[in-house]
């Protein structure tokens, strides 16, 4: 073990570069260290951008948290394959049970699509905190100087991305299975999908944090989330149905507005309540 020797061998310039934030020379044997000075430096806000309100570094931390989660998922492939597979299987089951003429199918395709997205997406929502709780990583994350809002928004973003990936598979699949023009108007469908994702992820991320503290996380989450997202599923299903029928009149806009309102209300609520959900 060479560690004991190495610590005294850091070149002085490294010590300043490495932790430029702190005036404390790192691991220097001589006691020139004065935590009191450090404290006053940190709290006095000596032109340090990190101390000035919503600093840039919170955005950077948000970015690093999102990329950490996506990288972990890309490497482990623990959740997304299962989620996509469940989505495909549920879609096939629905298609099997609703082998109807296109005119009737048109009425229900939106509802089926969004229920499939919801049930498969629940897997991703559930894992977003369960994965962190392994090896105490969650506590580590909370012990960093990061605001809970930042953590919430990062988790929310990862879940929105997961749901978007799910939709990239499910919407074409539904178009193929039902032979309906789901992709004829990509713009409106993408708008509905994005707003829907944001709404489901906003409620789901918050409630996943709530459920993950209990012992019965995975089976409880759909039960908690589904009643909350009923207006959203209703709105998204109706908007999808109208889009399939090429009807982009006021009633389509009304449903889109509902989706938007839902997303705004629950992202705000999530930011406000997340702190309570994660405290010990």
């Amino acid at each position: 073990m060479t560690g004991r020797n190495t610590i005294n061998h850091h070149p002085p310039e490294y010590q300043n570069r490495c932790c430029g934030r702190s005036p404390t020379p790192r691991l220097r044997p001589k006691v020139s260290h004065s935590p009191g000075d450090l404290r006053s430096d940190v709290s006095a806000g000596s032109g340090d951008p990190r101390r000035t309100g919503v600093s840039q570094s919170q955005y950077q931390k948000f970015y690093w948290m999102v990329s950490k989660d996506l990288l972990s998922e890309c490497r482990s492939l623990r959740v997304w394959p299962a989620m996509l597979l469940l989505g495909v299987v549920v879609a096939m089951m629905f298609a099997m049970q609703t082998d109807l003429p296109p005119q009737q199918l048109r009425q229900i395709v939106g509802g089926l699509l969004w229920l499939t997205i919801f049930f498969a997406g629940t897997l991703a929502l559930d894992r977003s905190f369960a994965a962190e709780r392994e090896d105490g990583c969650w506590e580590g994350l909370l012990s960093y100087p990061v605001s809970p809002t930042c953590v919430y928004l990062a988790k929310l973003t990862v879940n929105v991305v997961a749901l978007a990936a799910l939709e990239c598979v499910l919407i074409p699949l539904f178009a193929i299975l039902t032979d309906l023009p789901l992709l004829a108007h990509p713009g409106p469908i993408i708008t509905v999908a994005l707003l829907g994702n944001l709404g489901i992820a906003a409620v789901g991320t918050l409630l996943s944090a709530v459920a993950s503290t209990g012992k019965q996380s995975s089976y409880l989450l759909p039960l908690l989330v589904l009643p909350m997202v009923i207006p959203l599923v209703l709105g998204a299903a109706e908007a999808t149905r109208l889009a399939v029928e090429h009807d982009f009149g006021p009633s389509w806009w009304r449903w889109v507005e509902l989706l938007g309102a839902f997303a705004i209300v629950f992202v705000t609520a999530g930011i406000a309540l997340f702190e309570f959900a994660v405290e010990e």
Partner: peptide, 26 residues
């Protein structure tokens, strides 16, 4: 802590870099 708080799918270096970024290390 008791638990090591390391992300199992990140390398050791990535784990440390992530922690450093969270703590505003330059």
């Amino acid at each position: 802590a008791h638990e090591n708080r390391l992300y199992p799918h990140l390398t050791l270096r990535e784990n440390l870099i992530f922690a450093a970024r969270m703590c505003d290390v330059v």
